[in-house]
Design a protein around this nucleic acid. Structure first.
Lengths: 158, 158
DNA sequence: CGATGTATCTAGATCGTCTAGTAGTTAGAG
DNA sequence: CTCTAACTACTAGACGATCTAGATACATCG
């Protein structure tokens, strides 16, 4: 959010035009990236938190099971809201509930193949565009970009 | 959103490690940036759309009046929702309604000084951190960064 | 075994948005 | 210049996603 406000009177201006220009481009990227997310929500006909949930389950199912508990904690919502959210996504055909073999109280969430196919077909074009765009820079240039991104990320974290 | 999923099986891997690494850092930045927005929402005790509205009125009040109509259109919500949103922000002391001198049907929205002070104090530290971080790169490096950001932004837009 | 903690779910309330429709104001066609 | 169509903001009522509170089933530890 800090980025979105950076074009106001935070700097007297003049001597750091180049820095401001770079940060403006960074802001522009963030805004456009947010739009792709909005478009995806429209494609899948789901809301923001449901899309975040889908991504979390999709990522997590690689390295281990995702429980409703973990999902709710990740999203910062209550267990009641998590139940409702999983109900929605299961009913929409994006998620499946399965019993947790290690704890009979628990559940394990999995994305359906339909969800994975839908996500991939929606994003494949953008992802390959991104890879092509970034691929046109040489290793030295990418090293500079990485340093910059690391620096601004650390700046926001502090 | 494409970025958030880029660490999955989109690439056979190997020959483009550097490219993937840069895009991962870009993703990391997007995630951290989103967290700063969440923190700001908690600070101001308002929700996402209300914060976007505040930013829109704040930006727009420089170059011309912002009407509820324009605000609602920008946010993609109906006029009824806009009325309710402006009610909330006005009641919270962040916004003022004033009659539009040029059209007696219309209103003009202004942020209160309290809102500006609160936003500035919440963001000043992060903005100066960002400027410091970006300021440690020389003009040549910043030019590379700008090219990269422009390229990935264009890639997402296409 | 029994006590306490954990994982999920249900019931009812709250809040932001929506659809539908109202009153006042503007502006263009005749 | 007037009449009518379009526009601006608002109100009323409904819906959906979230919340608080509490219920139920299972786990874990003394």
């Amino acid at each position: 959010m800090a980025l979105e406000l950076i074009n106001r009177s935070w700097l007297e201006g003049g001597e750091q035009d180049r820095v401001l220009s770079a940060l403006h481009l960074l802001r522009e990227f963030v805004v456009v990236e947010a739009e792709t997310r909005t478009n995806l929500m429209a494609d899948l006909k789901i809301k923001s938190n449901d899309l975040s949930a889908l991504r979390f389950v999709l990522d997590g199912s690689d390295e281990g099971a995702v429980s409703p508990r973990a999902l709710g904690h990740h999203l910062g919502i209550t267990s009641a809201s998590t139940t409702a959210l999983v109900n929605r996504l299961e009913h929409a055909g994006y998620l499946r509930r399965e019993p947790d073999p290690k704890d009979r109280r628990g559940l394990v969430l999995h994305t359906t193949q339909a969800a994975r196919v839908l996500l991939e077909s929606s994003l494949q074009r953008q992802v390959s565009s991104l890879l092509t765009a970034a691929g046109s820079f040489n290793p030295d240039e990418l090293a500079v970009v990485e340093d910059f991104l690391q620096a601004v990320t650390d700046a926001l974290r502090s």
